[in-house]
């Protein structure tokens, strides 16, 4: 288990859910991140916009520790990702971050219920509490009747709602949403955004929303843009 001193939960009273200072990352000769600085308050929702190739996805990968940075520092709930082991990084991903993908990426062999429950199982949350949370989230996303359907039996909008519930089951400090409405029609997209806003409010979770769509920014407190690896 991650030590309490490095646990983001230990620092959940911190003002910033996410703090990025001078993040640099390059792939070979290509500089993808050029000194990115960003702070997200607890419960704050920020939209990150920018053209393809501007470094948005790389930034998300660096935030969740999948991609190591070349320089700079990222703090999640006050805990610097620079100073911790790979094992602790995995633990932080499990505890502090919820991830919503453009293509949902639900586990195809698990039902909606099991998909939502999965991150809680990874954290060894007691069964009763886990099941309560799943029920509560299923109710919140309006899919209680579809709980035992597998992803291939759900529509795109339903899949994304399940993905959002999965991102929230373990009560993270931060949700990283990578174009969550990119694969959805306007109506479904609208419902997903509203759901993200409501749940973010309800669970006091910060949201970093990567999007190309100006309309999606309506749920955000702040909109920032990225170009050629820098925030503008």
């Amino acid at each position: 288990m991650i030590s309490s001193s490095t646990s983001p939960h230990a620092g959940s009273t911190q003002k910033f859910a996410l703090e990025i200072n001078s993040a640099h990352k390059s792939f070979g000769q290509v500089d993808v991140l050029k000194g990115v600085n960003l702070k997200l308050d607890t419960g704050e929702r920020v939209a990150l916009m920018g053209p393809s190739g501007s470094g948005k996805s790389t930034l998300l990968n660096c935030i969740c520790g999948i991609e190591p940075m070349d320089q700079g520092e990222i703090k999640l709930g006050g805990v610097s990702l620079n100073d911790i082991s790979a094992k602790d990084l995995e633990q932080i991903r499990r505890q502090s971050i919820g991830y919503v993908f453009q293509s949902f990426h639900l586990l195809p062999t698990l039902s909606a219920f099991e998909n939502i429950e999965f991150p809680a199982q990874l954290l060894d949350i007691p069964k009763k509490e886990r099941l309560d949370r799943v029920e509560q989230l299923l109710d919140a996303i309006g899919l209680s009747q579809r709980a035992h359907h597998k992803p291939d039996a759900l529509s795109g909008g339903e899949c994304q709602r399940v993905a959002i519930a999965r991102a929230l089951i373990h009560r993270p400090n931060l949700i990283l949403a990578d174009e969550p409405t990119g694969s959805l029609d306007t109506d479904s997209g609208g419902q997903v955004l509203t759901l993200l806003e409501d749940l973010s409010n309800e669970f006091k979770v910060a949201l970093l929303l990567v999007t190309h769509d100006q309309a999606s920014t309506r749920i955000c407190n702040r909109v920032i843009s990225m170009k050629d690896g820098s925030l503008v």
Partner: peptide
């Protein structure tokens, strides 16, 4: 996806 979910 599992890696993003913290699968070691």
């Amino acid at each position: 996806t599992l890696r993003h979910l913290g699968f070691s």
